[in-house]
């Protein structure tokens, strides 16, 4: 199954147009189509209203677009991975983006800001199985975290945390709402995590301390 070596793939794809190149392109297209269909079929609950022909069309488009991207970027393949794994990443990335876009729900930056207090209220209220002293501790920790988030972070960092960590939205969806790339969002969240971590450690609070209060 797709037994070509990395070198063989590269050589064939970089050939001048002809039989050898056409054969390699066909083979690569077949691989990308099969790979993306594995992904789509594993996520078919998200494509519940899609019929077979529509899925075929979507998969063909994704495979075709990935094929073009791969041909344009052959010079960036450094041979550290198998060529098929490298190529597969490109089609998976496109397919995952496509499904995420379909998952987007309507929300705005304003809703990210407004939702902040509610998030903490619901957690503090979750006290059915907790000991009374734990409930008080929980409230304290939540109040502290909220204070750190409100005083130490920028507004954009707060919006990013709300969307990704508290509401469980995808990085891509929140990045789009913030008008930044996923890469920039990762950096924004990384800086925010570092700030929160440092604030907690400055108060000599370990993860275990906080976990103990949230045990059930």
């Amino acid at each position: 199954m797709f037994p070509r070596s990395n070198q063989n793939w590269l050589r064939a794809l970089q050939e001048p147009p002809g039989e050898a190149q056409a054969e390699a392109l066909d083979e690569l297209h077949d691989f990308l189509l099969r790979a993306v269909l594995v992904y789509l079929s594993q996520n078919r609950n998200e494509l519940a209203d899609w019929g077979r022909q529509a899925v075929r069309g979507l998969a063909e488009d994704l495979a075709q677009d990935a094929l073009l991207e791969i041909r344009d970027n052959l010079n960036t393949f450094r041979g550290e991975a198998k060529f098929t794994t490298w190529a597969c990443q490109i089609v998976i990335n496109r397919a995952a983006s496509e499904l995420r876009r379909r998952r987007y729900s309507d929300f705005s930056l304003d809703s990210l800001r407004e939702n902040e207090p509610a998030v903490f209220q619901s957690l503090a209220a979750d006290k059915e199985k907790a000991e009374p002293e734990h409930v008080a501790e929980r409230r304290n920790y939540l109040a502290l975290l909220r204070e750190i988030v409100e005083t130490e972070l920028s507004e954009r960092q707060r919006a990013a945390i709300t969307g990704v960590h508290w509401q469980g939205r995808s990085m891509e969806e929140v990045a789009d709402a913030l008008g930044i790339t996923r890469n920039a969002l990762y950096k924004l969240l990384h800086d925010a995590r570092k700030s929160i971590r440092d604030q907690l450690l400055a108060r000599h609070l370990t993860q275990g301390d906080i976990l103990a209060a949230f045990e059930e």
Partner: peptide, 10 residues
């Protein structure tokens, strides 16, 4: 491809 596609309704 056809095997994966068969998981979707016609």
């Amino acid at each position: 491809a056809e095997k994966s596609l068969a998981l979707f309704e016609e």
